[in-house]
Design a protein around this nucleic acid. Structure first.
Lengths: 338, 338
DNA sequence: TTGTAGGCGTTATCAC
DNA sequence: GTGATAACGCCTACAA
């Protein structure tokens, strides 16, 4: 079923059908109605490929996510959901590309095959090949996250440095002197994962500013690892009284390790972090954390991207988000242990 | 950058470039090399829209997921990941469509705009408009899940009826006489969500077969709700000693309610269910459950879809999966309480 | 082994 | 207010 067939049956030309649909030129009410009747009858829809070919745009955006093998954190899932949602509201389709490995055909197709009008890129590293590829391709894109030198791209990001700094200050205010930062998994951090490095920087700076003692440690992104990790940490550093973390998936394991060690939260030990709101609230006990507004970030990223697609020449926009810390009761005044 | 430009610079005709790329006709080594050089130089890639228009296929599949607003369970996320992964392995792109509401433009676009060669449909209801739409559209599709009368579609599904039946028998074997089924959220079940109804049927049948007493209850899909729900359940039915569930997201809350009531698992109370393996393992304590092989199911669905796209006339295939129950220690012999 | 030409379904330019 | 027609970029008979 194509536009020619509709035109024939409605007794008009193809262009008239086209204009009746797009409204880009006046068409008389009578013919418009006649055309619509035929369309409804035959269930005609414009062919997306033909339209894309002619118009030079696909009404589709690409969403580049971490490879499917490694499972998404709740926060990442939140980004995906909100991007898809925001795109749907703007009548844009979303093409998913799991990418990150080297030999990445999916990513190449998306970037290079004119399959999408623009790209939202997740899980950006400090040095990121995909960013370079996108920059040289000229395809509009927006990062959820940013590289080390992010001036020449548009992005939305969480200010992990500031937020972890705030966590440290908050804990310091409560009298804690020996803190640990529990980071994301070691491979990610070693690969230059921005949030990992920035959280570390924020931690170190705040620790120095307040004259505290701090250690950092990487931890795989699941509860099991959180348990093992904190067990080890408590053994190695019995003087610890508080933790700051960006590893939401590991927190419930940390709780278990603390319970195991006979430490009550927040009476004997405090935890604060950065996490998706939904996740922080659903932990037991609910985690005192800076609630990352994943919904808003995804929507903003899509918004920025749409503008950029409309006019690739506009200056880049940067949105650094530092939500306030929601106190939920996992932090309290220090209490000496013996 | 189009094929004509490449042809011009390589000093050959467009068709030669095309044939050099597709290999559908012999091209001399020399010209092939010359063409490749130009291509590498200019970074040429065939325009996907033009190719789709000419070939009548898009090399893209649609993945219809529950609307983004409601958050995905771990199991659903597993399906998405495995579908995307399997598609990428077959060099297929995935177009995501959040759908389920009525006024669903995204779904309509996918089904009707020739944007995809086929569709994987998730979260199918017993009566499902989307299935009817797809059937009448003639677009190849495969369900992860199935309708009430699923003979005329291809699908991969979990045999909730059998699995929950097995859970009940397992619990009965351990001496439990009073069981409850904790289902997914009430709206979903009321809307005819297949797994919910089939789990209930399996529960009722097994209960009857073993001459037990059983109640069922719906519960929203989060830990908080699980806690409230079980608290209520224990109050209303103090004689309960075990639970079977398909609501993985609520289990950790159920644990909390049990602890609250001074009931130890599995000493005083048993729980068994159906859940994503990753989720069951990460609960504390790890849940005795039929481990849903989400990876395999997504891969199978894509496999079926690819075959169906290649030849829409082949008979439908149905894959009903009933993984064994992994004993992880949340079920034990009944112990009378007083 | 290579070139020429037509058409996939749309939109847009030109003419009436 | 409407119709014919030329692109968009690719693939593939058909010719040479």
């Amino acid at each position: 079923m194509n536009i020619g067939e509709i035109a024939k049956r409605a007794g008009v030309s193809r262009s008239t059908v086209s204009y009746a649909l797009t409204g880009r030129r006046p068409v008389s009410e009578a013919t418009k109605r006649r055309i619509q009747t035929v369309i409804d009858e035959l269930g005609y829809r414009p062919n997306a490929a033909a339209r894309a070919l002619k118009e030079g745009r696909t009404r589709t955006i690409g969403l580049v996510i971490p490879p499917a093998g490694q499972r998404l954190t709740d926060m990442q899932l939140g980004f995906v959901a909100s991007v898809v949602d925001a795109a749907a509201r703007a009548d844009l389709d979303v093409l998913l590309s799991p990418s990150g490995g080297e030999h990445d055909r999916s990513f190449e197709r998306v970037v290079t095959g004119k399959r999408v009008d623009g790209v939202v890129l997740m899980e950006i590293r400090l040095e990121d090949d995909r960013v370079s590829r996108l920059l040289e391709s000229g395809l509009p894109f927006v990062g959820i996250g940013r590289t080390r030198h992010p001036e020449d791209m548009s992005w939305v990001d969480i200010d992990y440095e500031t937020l972890i700094g705030r966590c440290v200050h908050h804990l310091a205010d409560l009298g804690h002197r020996h803190l640990a930062l529990v980071n994301r998994n070691a491979e990610l951090v070693a690969a230059g994962y921005g949030p990992g490095h920035r959280a570390q920087a924020g931690f170190d700076r705040a620790i120095a500013e307040r004259g505290l003692r701090g250690v950092h440690v990487c931890c795989a992104d699941d509860a099991q690892a959180g348990q093992t990790c904190l067990r080890q940490l408590l053994a190695d550093h019995p003087e610890l009284t508080a933790i700051a973390t960006i590893n939401e998936a590991a927190v419930s394991g940390m709780y278990r390790a603390l319970a195991e060690a006979g430490l009550a939260v927040p009476r004997d030990f405090s935890i604060a972090g950065v996490a998706a709101q939904h996740w922080a609230e659903n932990l037991q006990p609910p985690l005192t954390a800076a609630d990352v507004p994943a919904d808003e970030m995804g929507a903003r990223a899509v918004e920025l991207l749409i503008r950029r697609i409309a006019d690739p020449a506009i200056p880049h926009r940067h949105l650094l988000i530092a939500p306030p810390i929601s106190l939920r009761g996992t932090t309290g005044p220090v209490r000496s242990r013996d």
